[in-house]
Amino acid sequence: MFAFRLDTRSGVPTYLQLVEQVRHGLLLGYLQDGDQLPTVRDVAAALVVNPNTVAKAYRELERAGLVAPRAGQGTFVTGNVDRVPAATYAKLSARLRAWVNAAREAGLGPDQVRALVTAILDEDRSKARAA
């Protein structure tokens, strides 16, 4: 069964953390079409969070079309995310790791790396829009 975790220091609201973890799980292939998510009760008891918060996350996922409840059975993944093959991920993350190493050697801190990535992504997006 899919296991959630909480980062209590991130400042990100709990329900959003749960939503993001399912989204990530789908993108990275840890979660697949037809997988069952743990019940609201189990998540609330395991993470010691308010069940209303977990229910809110599940409603949000349902609205996004990523999961669907089946009457009397629980909540299941409906996998509507464009998934990239695992091999492609592996290849890209290996190259990214090498690039991050190079950036560190060049004296860039994590914030500078993040700023650079954001800038390039923004540039890419505006180029795509112009095309």
Binding site: L6, T39, V40, A44, A45, L47, V48, V49, N50, N52
Partner: peptide, 26 residues
């Protein structure tokens, strides 16, 4: 938390654990 999920229970609790409130209380 499990008991709250199982029922329509309303809970009123006093606490000094402020860090926990954000996760537990609405």
């Amino acid at each position: 938390m499990g008991a709250v999920a199982d029922s329509e229970l309303t809970v009123l609790l006093s606490s000094h654990a402020i860090g926990e409130l954000e996760r537990v209380c609405d």
